[in-house]
Amino acid sequence: MTTVETPPIIDLAAASAAASPQRVIVQRTRKRNFGTWVRGGGVSNLVFLLPMLVIFGAFSWYPIVQALVMSFQKTNLVTPAIFVGWDNFARVLHDPNLYVAIQNTGYFALLALIFGYPVPLVAAVLMSEVRRGKGLFSALAYLPVVVPPVVAVLLWKFFYDGRPEGVFNTILGWVGIPPQPWIQNAIEAMPSLVLEATWAAAGGTVIIYLAALTSVPPELYDAAEVDGASIWQKIWHVTLPQLRGVLIITLILQIIGTSQVFLEPFLFTGGGPANATITILLLIYRYAFQNSLGGNYGAATALSVMLALFLAALSLIYFQLTKRWSS
């Protein structure tokens, strides 16, 4: 027992001598493996991969590297670029709109988390409980995901008509609530955006949860029932713990997604009223494209790089923190 646990004294010469034959074997194996790889269709696999590598390289990896380089440049993409060191990062950090955008993005993420995160879960649990028409409910829940996002936003913009005869205001009128300005008011604009975003995205998450719910062993529910558990106790003690892996993934995806919210503020309000819905991505867009005279692409890419680093760090920290729980 003790001899096993004692740290071995390493004799380098002996170890080297002992390792040599092994190394020869490894090399031989490698040679044989390479030959086998070629004969086994390795080259053709590589050639098959080539179109994808070219397309990814040209349209995904190259722009990423280019954006990184551009974040240190002053360029209008027509005349030659000039390296300006950290100037773009400094400019972005000194822009008062950055802090408004961070605040707004955080607010959107928070609202989406409070309202948007539980909704699909509750819907999925309820739908899994119904005995008939499960397919119909799934289809109904998924329907908004099928609607093209731009169409959905334009539709909701129509619903959000601030006049008393607007769709939502008419409905509110039925229950005696006065007409609301919706997206035409700095206070109501962001919650209105979150409402549409939740409607648009919930269906996809519902389907994921429904799939995860089918993998919960029915014996666990049976056992809980035998122990006299109520429906809420079953959800709390069986369903949610069984779904935690999926819940963690959807949570981090939601945080990343909401940190990059662009479509809704861009199409609904353009960041207004009075910057009430300007988000980080919209600010990046404004840096690049608001000025017809050639935008500040350096500042736009600098902020993009900062956002990417922040999200990467956030994901790492999150996974570290939840590693034990998720396993």
Partner: peptide, 14 residues
Amino acid sequence: EWTGPTFAAQLAGG
């Protein structure tokens, strides 16, 4: 149609 954002994108994109 000349609009600020689309013109900037077309100009930069060549």
